[in-house]
Computed example of a mutant assay.
Amino acid sequence: MRYNGLTDFLSTGAKALAKGPVAMIFVEDLIEVESTITHHQNAGFAEVLVFAPDVLELPDAIENTIHRIPYAVAREGALQHAVNKIIDAAPGIWLYYCFNAEYLFHPFCETRSIGELLAFHTEERRNSVLTYVVDLYADDLSHYPNAVSLDHAYLDKSGYYALGRPDADGNPRERQLEFFGGLRWRFEEHIPPARRKIDRISIFRAKKGLKLRPDHTFSDEEYNTFACPWHNNITVAIASFRTAKALKSNAGSTFEISSFKWHNSTQFNWSSQQLLDLGLMEPGQWF
C-alpha cells in the first residue's frame, strides 16, 4: 500500500502496527532496494515499512506487499524523526530499522524466524537487541565501482574491538560498550569520529516515551546494554554495504581507495554460522 507521507500512514495505516515484528527500511539511494525488502520479508517480519523517494520503482509483486511511505531520508534527523513517530504509534510492538543494502542476520536464521527469536528474547525480559553492523564490500572495485555485489561480497574477519561507553562524568556505563572495526576503522580518516562505531540497537520493543537518539542509542539506558545482569543475551548482525557505498561515492575518499580487500578479508557466504564463527553475533542462552 502506498501512502502520501508519514502523517498519512500514521492516520490511515495503523493496522500495520497492530502486530509485530515490524521492519522499517530507509532508502538512501536506489541500490539493492528489492533485495533488502525481500531479505527482511523472508526473515519473518509481519509488516515491512519502506521509507523511500518517489523516484524508486518497484515490481508490483513487491510493491503490493509493503507499506510505501514517501520520505526524504537524507534530511538531517530524518531517521530519528520517523522511528520516534513509529515508536509513539506502536507501544509494545517489536520494531526494527535498517537502510537499503543492509541485511539482518540472527543466530540460526536459516531455520528460525525473527519472531521466534523475539519470543525467546521477551521471555528473557529483554526489550532490545544489540546489533553489530558488519561492513560488506565488493572484491573488485573496477567491476563494481559502487562497492556493492551480492555475489562477490567480502567482510573483515578480524580487527574488531570494544571500548567502555562513558557517562556524563566519564565513568563507564554498566553493561554498555562501543564497538569498532571494519571499514570505519580501517578508513577512519574519512569517517567523522561520531560515526565510527559499528553498534546499533536495531531491534527494540516500543514503549511510551522511548526516543531514538542520533548515535543509534535510546533514551532508556537499559535498551543500550549488551546483556542483562545475569547472563549473556542474543546479539545479531546487519551485513551492510552502507559504509563501502559512502566511501566510494564521497569525493574526498573515492579516489584514495582502489580496493577494500586486505589480508584479513574473507568472502561472505551469507550464513549465520559464518558470523557466529567470527564472533560477530552470539546466541546467548538460545539453543
Results as ranks from 00 to 15, higher is better:
residue 215 D to M: 14
residue 198 I to R: 05
residue 203 I to M: 12
residue 27 V to Y: 02
residue 146 N to Y: 09
residue 130 L to A: 05
residue 160 Y to S: 00
residue 256 E to W: 05
residue 283 P to D: 09
residue 93 I to S: 05
residue 276 L to C: 09
residue 160 Y to W: 00
residue 96 Y to W: 14
residue 74 A to E: 03
residue 131 T to A: 01
residue 169 D to H: 04
residue 112 R to W: 14
residue 32 E to M: 03
residue 72 A to V: 14
residue 23 A to L: 01
residue 270 W to R: 01
residue 214 P to D: 10
residue 202 S to F: 12
residue 33 V to F: 07
residue 148 V to Q: 11
residue 190 H to P: 01
residue 200 R to C: 14
residue 133 V to W: 00
residue 283 P to M: 07
residue 71 Y to M: 11
residue 86 I to W: 08
residue 104 L to V: 05
residue 111 T to G: 12
residue 279 G to C: 10
residue 219 S to P: 05
residue 86 I to V: 12
residue 16 A to Q: 03
residue 270 W to K: 09
residue 241 F to S: 07
residue 161 Y to C: 11
residue 215 D to Q: 04
residue 183 L to E: 08
residue 274 Q to T: 05
residue 66 I to M: 05
residue 252 G to H: 05
residue 177 L to W: 14
residue 142 S to F: 13
residue 74 A to I: 10
residue 264 N to A: 13
residue 50 V to F: 07
residue 68 R to F: 12
residue 264 N to Y: 13
residue 212 L to R: 13
residue 255 F to E: 12
residue 186 R to S: 11
residue 93 I to V: 10
residue 49 L to S: 04
residue 252 G to A: 04
residue 272 S to Y: 00
residue 136 L to C: 00
residue 178 E to T: 15
residue 26 F to A: 02
residue 287 F to L: 12
residue 29 D to V: 02
residue 115 G to E: 15
residue 42 N to P: 06
